[in-house]
């Protein structure tokens, strides 16, 4: 791996960590646990298109572990890992088909993140009642995905000439 790439990937980890922290400062908009914009996903969508799936997955997992250790708890880390893993898998597969725009890939990431967290919550709290939030989270996940995907599209367009 080139030094330049190492530095760039480190910067991506730092950026996604800052976005995670920044997002935790925003007061919740809707009274449902799990509703958020998913700002770190901006970095992931960008990386998926600009660099590659392997690097994106690595940066995402490292981010979850570091953010969990710094600001979270072991429990919050498990939630984040499940959400991030499912979201990444979906986004990588959808992007690989080559049929969809960044907005759609980001929407898939948003809702799969929520689905992953709900499934984890059902297992952790050993109750299926949390699935009650699923319809609401599908809608907010879609809205968040559209916003993130739109911004990621803008960034990709502006940084089109950047060589890595």
């Amino acid at each position: 791996m080139k030094t330049k790439k190492v530095a760039f990937l480190s910067m991506c980890i730092a950026l996604s960590m800052i976005l995670s922290y920044f997002e935790s400062l925003i007061p919740p908009l809707v009274a449902v646990p799990g509703v958020k914009v998913g700002l770190p996903n901006l970095v992931m969508v960008f990386m998926l298109y600009k660099i590659g799936p392997f690097e994106t997955a690595t940066v995402s997992i490292i981010r979850v572990i570091l953010v969990g250790m710094l600001f979270g708890s072991p429990l919050s880390m498990i939630y984040s890992l499940a959400g991030a893993a499912l979201s990444l898998l979906g986004m990588i597969l959808l992007k690989k088909t080559g049929l969809f725009a960044p907005i759609t890939v980001s929407v898939a990431g948003g809702i799969l993140h929520n689905i992953g967290q709900i499934v984890t919550a059902c297992i952790v709290m050993s109750t299926s009642q949390i699935a009650y939030y699923l319809p609401v989270l599908l809608i907010t996940g879609t809205v968040a995905g559209v916003i993130i995907g739109y911004v990621a599209g803008l960034i990709l367009k502006r940084l089109d000439k950047m060589k890595l």
């Binding site: 969809f100 907005i103 759609t104 929407v107 809702i111 319809p135 599908l138 809608i139 879609t142 559209v146």
Partner: peptide
């Protein structure tokens, strides 16, 4: 695709 996700949610 996005519309069908929203329809499923609804």
């Amino acid at each position: 695709l996005i519309a069908s996700i929203l329809i499923v949610a609804a």
